[in-house]
Nucleic acid binder design. Structure first.
Lengths: 93, 93
DNA sequence: CAACATTGTAACCTATTTGGTTACATATTT
DNA sequence: AAATATGTAACCAAATAGGTTACAATGTTG
């Protein structure tokens, strides 16, 4: 159970990939075939990376789609822990 | 990249957990605090396990939520690969 | 067999999410 | 100053997650 707020994969995309390849949001959006607005929302951590977009990133940057989705999963899970109430869930033993 | 259709986590839930603990769909739904219909859809592989439900399963069966979500991820990814068209995605190098 | 428990599913509903377009104002570079 | 790049608002559409209620079809068991 992670103690600290894991990074949003959009941050990784921006800092580790777009920076290295000198890609603007507008250029990369075109390359991926998604809207500039949506990519902007991704790199600003406003929306999650979907399975479909993970596949596109994977092809574009020659990664696995899993690295994007596992980072998204960690991010989502951390935030869900802060909000989901489990008090009424019964334990099975 | 997995060659074969990975199992839906609902199958695991049914075969490995509900069977062991002798839980019916109706009983477990109550314990988790979700509707019987929704749990039925999960164990019949009709709908995915959400982050929230993974947290509930984790508390109920004393697992990590990750085991449910990673299995879901593998399932989703495999199916997305069969449908998402990546032909128009440009490679960044 | 009769009674009961369990299940799948249909019909319906609501809120949220994913993604798009267009337009405009603000940065940031050159 | 001109050109480029960005954030974001106002829209919109399709899909998703999850709920309720009701009913028919199973299984199970006294």
């Amino acid at each position: 159970m992670e103690m600290f707020n894991p990074p949003h994969p959009g941050e990784t995309l921006k800092e580790l990939y777009m920076k290295d390849y000198n890609l603007t949001i507008a250029k990369l959006a075109l390359m991926l075939g998604i809207s500039r607005k949506h990519l902007s929302n991704i790199v600003n951590c406003k929306v999650p990376i979907s399975t479909e977009i993970a596949l596109k990133l994977a092809k574009c940057f020659n990664t696995t789609p899993e690295i994007w989705l596992r980072e998204q999963l960690a991010y989502d899970l951390w935030h869900a822990r802060q909000t989901v109430n489990l008090d009424d869930v019964k334990v099975a033993f």
